[in-house]
Structure formats: structure tokens, C-alpha cells
Design a protein around this nucleic acid. Structure first.
Length: 433
RNA sequence: GGAGAGAUGGCCGAGCGGUUUAAGGCGGCGGUCUUGAAAACCGUUGAGCGCAAGCUCCGGGGGUUCGAAUCCCUCUCUCUCCGCCA
């Protein structure tokens, strides 16, 4: 949520910032409403002040046995006036808030111009050999063919059990998914200094609103029937809301959490996209990184958050590149976003495996997450950041495709072998159903 | 699911219609004392809106009243007991 005061006092800057996202916003009605609200607030305060002093007077008169009927009658009408003003204020506040909640964040100054993904800017390439991915000596197979041959992921049965866009992992496939989760969590907690948390996988409407999924993107969420809860689309939601309505001490910042959770997404409007394989599922696992930082530190924290996520791919020796999203391609709440894209040889292209963003005070204002700067009496909103570290299902895809051998078996990345019970190679499963 | 109790500042806790501008304690900060620290003592210490005067906030919302932390309704959450349950 944008700061009301900034929208009021620096309207042109706000409109200019939103224009970079390709959004043209008419704020005149909003500002008129704001003016009306503020005038009413002033009037109401003035009347309340009068009522407070006179009521005290009435109390004293009654105590000393003197009549106070005239004053009481007068105050009754003052009370009515206050009630009318309060109704106006409440209505204005509500419609102001409702509008503010639908306005996306302003892009940071360093975010490149552009209206869609074609304007994103590549800033880095990495591979075990240097920068470019190694060429396989044979025609690479797509991960779904490999998974089917090895019998480690069963898409058909998942469809039977539930429906499209679900997966049933089996044998080494299930083990690989679990190994990756543990590997990532261990890396982030033991080497990058994050505190592991395991949050609820369902959240309420307030939490979804704080991080920005609501009110605008309800159609992308799974809602639990007979209740008011939503399945989380990312651990960002429950983890960022850990400190909702809190005032953090300066000395605890930056706070760094990592969490494994499954994520649930409707993927409405993506019919026909990535229909085969693990790339786009209604349920997938992810290890998330979340930070709460001082405003002056947040962009430095974004860089280290990105490095922490990149490190997972480096340890797994998977080629990737990093891009800066342009203003028009960023998510609703973000002020700046880097995407990490992993190399998929069968698709002959890079695909998103992590998204690392600084939300500045956008989410903190919605969730009322504050801190007290050292030596200050006033509180300020913290900056929140998060990034995938990494999307687990897509990491499985990358391992299958990059580590595939000509015979269809998969070498297990060395860093992962301790988590796979020493397994060095995934071979075709036999004997079991 | 049934019955009951409760929600007050960072924490504990008093208040149950009018000097509450929310007592008191703990914790925090500053000071006195001390070689230093502890103890003791003194002072200070919630959030938000407003240029200011001032106004709002005692779980959320609504009501009664000249006046509500205090009375009423409602919702949410917590706790205790019973039932059910991995």
C-alpha cells in the first residue's frame, strides 16, 4: 500500500511511477474525497473537544446537586453532529483504503523501463564451466520423458487422484524432492544465517491482504470451503505475516527466515501453457527466503538474498542467468525484482526458478510491521524482501535435464548425494507397481 | 460439539459510568552513588492523526448515555472442564 500522505503531497511522482508500469491513474476523485475526510475530521475533533469539556462540567454540576439539563440538551445535539461526521469519515476512509489496496508499488529508480518480459535485462550468467551451459553430446530429452522412463514421477495417476497439474512422485523421485528440500534448508540455515520456520499452509484474509495477494488476485488462490482460509500460494505470505502488527527492535534487524512449504496456485488463465511436466503445477514445493530490514539497508539485503539463492544453483552445478525485471513485468507488491532462470537443455532456454524482490515498505504498511530506529522515539515501517531459494519442483526439472545421460539415467549432483543416502545415479525403477 | 471464564501499554496487572491526562510493578533509557558493576535512590518511558490548539486508540464492530476501559449486543481469539479425535 502506498503512503496516503505521499499520494496526496506528491501526486505527480506517484502517477509517473505507476505510468512506468503501464498504469494510468486518475486520482482527482481520490484527492477530493481525502479533502472532504480531513475537513470532517477537523470538525469532528473540534466538537468532541467541546463535548469533553462540557461533559466534565456536567459531572461537576451533578456532583454538587446543581441542575445541568440545559447543557445536557445542548450536548445531545452535539453528539448527533459528531455521529454524522463520523459516518462521513468512516465512509471516506473505507473507500480510500479500498482504492489504495488496489494500487501497485512504485518501481525503484534502478528498475529498467519496459512494458513486458521482452524488456527485462540480463545481468549475469553462470555455469560450472564459466558462463555458458555445456552442450550435451546427444539430443537432450525433456524431463517428463526422463521421469516417465525412470518411473519416478507419475503424472497420469496424479490426474486420476486429483486432476490436471498435479504430480505423484515415486521412489528416487520422491527421495530427490525431499533431499532438495533438506539440502536447501541446511544451506540457508547453516551457511547463510537464516532461521528455519515451518508456518501454517493456510492463512486468513488479513494476511493475504498484507502481502498483496488480496484484494486483487483472489482468482489465483485456492479458498477453503466452509471457512475463511486460503491455501498459501507461497511461504512469503505466512512468513512475512509473522511480524504483522508488531514493532521490532532495531537490534534484531535484519531478521532472516527460511521456510519450506508446499504452494498452491490456481494458475487461472494459463490454460495451454506448460501443460506437460513439472513446470506449472497447482501444488509445488518451495524453500523461501524472507527478510525484514532497515530501509537504508534493504537494497544491500536484496543483493545478498539473490546471492543466497544463486548459491543453491552453484552448489548443484546448474547453469543459470539473472535478470532484472523491467517496470512493466514486476509483480504487484514489488519495488524491484531479480529473477534467476535455470538452464533447461531440452527446452534450449532458461526458465524461472527463483524470484527475489524488495517490497520496500509496501507490505509493511499493509501489515503494520514497524521497527524503532536506534535512538529514535518514532517508529518506522520496515522493508520486507523475499525470494525463492529455490522452487523445488523446477530444481528437479533442472537436475533431470542437465544431469541426464545418453542412456536415460540421471547422475545425482555431488552436493546432493549425502541427502540421497549416497545414491550416485538414478536408474530405471523396476519391480514395484 | 457442550458448559464456563477471560482479552487493558514491551510484559504483568488494577480499574467495573464523571480529577484515568489508564494506578502499581517488571523491563528499557538517563542520572546520583561506585575504581567498575550490582544494589539502592531520583527522573523518564505506548501508538496514531494534525502546522498547532487538540483529537483518537483499553481484542474487532455496533449500541445505550450529556459522558463508556467500565453497561448492552455481536464477532474474533485465548484459557479451563466434558465429549470426539491423529
Amino acid at each position: 500500500m502506498l503512503d496516503l500522505k505521499i499520494v496526496r503531497e506528491r501526486t505527480e511522482e506517484v502517477k509517473q511511477g505507476l505510468r512506468r508500469r503501464g498504469i494510468e491513474l486518475d486520482l482527482s476523485e481520490f484527492l477530493a474525497l481525502d479533502e472532504k475526510r480531513r475537513v470532517s475530521q477537523q470538525d469532528a475533533d473540534e466538537l468532541r473537544r467541546k463535548r469533553n469539556t462540557v461533559s466534565e462540567q456536567i459531572g461537576k454540576l451533578k456532583k454538587s446537586g446543581q441542575p445541568a439539563e440545559d447543557l445536557m440538551t445542548e450536548m445531545r445535539s452535539v453528539g448527533d453532529s459528531i455521529a454524522k461526521l463520523e459516518a462521513i469519515i468512516r465512509e471516506a476512509e473505507e473507500s480510500q483504503r479500498n482504492l489504495l489496496l488496489t494500487i501497485p508499488n512504485i518501481p525503484h529508480g534502478t528498475v529498467p523501463e519496459g512494458k513486458d518480459e521482452t524488456a527485462n535485462v540480463e545481468i549475469k550468467r553462470w555455469s560450472p564451466q564459466g558462463t555458458e551451459p555445456a552442450k550435451l553430446s546427444f539430443e537432450p530429452k525433456p524431463h517428463w520423458d526422463l521421469a516417465e522412463y525412470l518411473d519416478i514421477i507419475d503424472f497420469d495417476r496424479a490426474t486420476k487422484i486429483t486432476g490436471a497439474r498435479f504430480a505423484l512422485y515415486k521412489g528416487a523421485g520422491a527421495r530427490l524432492e525431499r533431499a532438495l528440500i533438506n539440502f536447501m534448508l541446511d544451506l540457508h540455515t547453516e551457511e547463510h544465517g537464516y532461521l528455519e520456520v515451518l508456518p501454517p499452509f493456510m492463512v486468513n484474509r488479513t494476511s493475504m491482504t498484507a502481502t498483496g495477494q488480496l484484494p486483487k488476485f483472489e482468482e489465483e488462490l485456492f479458498k477453503v470451503e466452509n471457512g475463511t482460509y486460503f491455501l498459501i500460494p507461497t511461504a512469503e505470505v505466512p512468513v512475512t505475516n509473522i511480524h504483522q502488527e508488531e514493532i521490532l527492535g532495531d537490534e534484531v534487524l535484519p531478521v532472516k527466515y527460511t521456510a519450506y512449504t508446499p504452494c498452491f496456485r490456481r494458475e487461472a488463465g494459463s490454460y495451454g501453457k506448460d501443460t506437460r511436466g513439472l513446470i506449472r503445477q497447482h501444488q509445488f514445493n518451495k524453500v523461501e527466503l524472507v527478510k525484514f530490514a532497515r530501509p537504508e539497508d534493504s537494497y544491500r539485503e536484496l543483493e545478498t538474498l539473490l546471492l543466497d539463492a544463486e548459491n543453491v544453483l552453484q552448489r548443484l552445478q546448474l547453469p543459470y542467468r539473472v535478470i532484472t525485471l523491467c517496470a512493466g513485468d514486476m509483480g504487484f507488491s514489488a519495488a524491484k525484482t531479480y529473477d534467476i532462470e535455470v538452464w533447461l537443455p531440452a527446452q534450449n532456454r532458461y526458465r524461472e526458478i527463483s524470484s527475489c524482490s524488495n517490497f520496500e515498505d509496501f507490505q509493511a504498511r499493509r501489515g503494520n510491521i514497524r521497527y524503532r530506529p536506534k535512538g529514535s522515539k518514532k517508529t518506522e515501517f520496515v522493508h520486507t524482501l523475499n525470494g525463492s531459494g529455490l522452487a523445488v519442483g523446477r530444481t528437479v526439472v533442472a537436475i533431470l535435464e542437465n544431469y541426464q545421460q545418453s542412456d536415460g539415467t540421471i547422475m545425482v549432483p555431488e552436493a546432493l548425494r549425502p541427502y540421497m543416502g549416497g545414491m550416485e545415479r538414478i536408474v530405471r525403477r523396476g519391480g514395484n507397481p
